[in-house]
Design a protein around this nucleic acid. Structure first.
Length: 260
DNA sequence: ATGTCGACGAATCGTCGA
């Protein structure tokens, strides 16, 4: 069973990339972020023709998340955003899929970027991260078999940044953000990418500017965290850089986890 | 290199967010 996550930077602009990638990589679940579209624009038909069911939570211009699945989700328990946390942004969608070993809870999220420390947006990021952790604590009680996937907008460790010294203390690299990432691990979640040997300088995002991809000036900010109950079933986790080389790419690459 | 990309509203570019 394979679960993937991809920030597509507008599904309107990237639908063909998603369809092409799914054809080559027929994962069981694909979580998408930054759809930048409302539900009436969402390509349900095209995805269905490609063999995928979809649930989405969108808004105009910004944010927006979806879960694409080869088999329909348990419809009754799809959750949009963090329950009890008032939020103008569409950032979270969670659902349950049937999987070997029992139902699997998939939480797809587009974490707040936060702009820069000291700004209102950074404060919102901290508040949102606290609310996410508090909700996930309960969610893990209800669903011990859980994966948290998406664009975390957090560089967990120095080795996940092309310039950890020059960028120390800047957005995505602050101690406060890393503290929140660790707080998720303290819930029993594990960064599945680090369960396996990985190439040096593995990143999931590269700035469009300054030949960021060509120079591998990237960050690893897209993650797949697995609950303790699932950790033993993880077989592989990898970043697929291929679509980052296609014409008009998303600035993010997809990440895929394989569970046995 | 503020050095790109995408969406939007209003104009055929400026602004915002990432």
């Amino acid at each position: 069973m394979k679960i993937a996550t991809w920030n597509v930077n507008s599904l309107t602009a990237r639908l063909q990339h998603v369809l092409d990638w799914l054809q080559a990589n027929p994962v069981d679940v694909l979580a998408l972020q930054e759809l930048k579209q409302t539900e009436d624009k969402f390509p349900f038909m095209e995805l269905e023709a490609a063999g995928y069911n979809a649930v989405m939570f969108g808004q105009k211009t910004y944010n927006g998340v979806a879960l694409l699945t080869r088999t329909p989700l348990v419809a009754a328990d799809v959750t949009r955003n963090i329950p009890g946390f008032a939020d103008d942004s569409a950032r979270v969608i969670a659902g349950t899929v049937d999987a070997p070993g029992g139902p699997l809870r998939v939480v797809g999220a587009y974490f707040v970027n936060g702009q820069a420390p000291g700004t209102d947006k950074f404060d919102y990021k901290m508040t949102w991260l606290r609310a996410l952790r508090d909700w996930l604590r309960d969610e893990l009680d209800r669903h011990p078999r859980l994966v948290l996937v998406g664009d975390f907008n957090i560089v967990p460790e120095d080795r996940d940044s092309y310039d950890p010294v020059g960028l120390a203390g800047t957005i995505l690299h602050t101690d406060e953000e890393r503290h929140h990432f660790k707080a998720l691990l303290d819930l029993g979640l594990v960064d599945s990418f680090r369960l396996f040997e990985q190439p040096e300088k593995s990143y999931t995002w590269w700035d469009y500017r300054q030949l960021g991809y060509q120079k591998n000036r990237g960050l690893r900010i897209d993650h797949i965290l697995v609950s303790a109950a699932l950790k033993g079933q993880a077989v592989a986790c990898s970043i697929d850089r291929a679509p980052r080389k296609w014409p008009k790419p998303s600035d993010h690459a997809p990440v895929t986890l394989e569970l046995r």
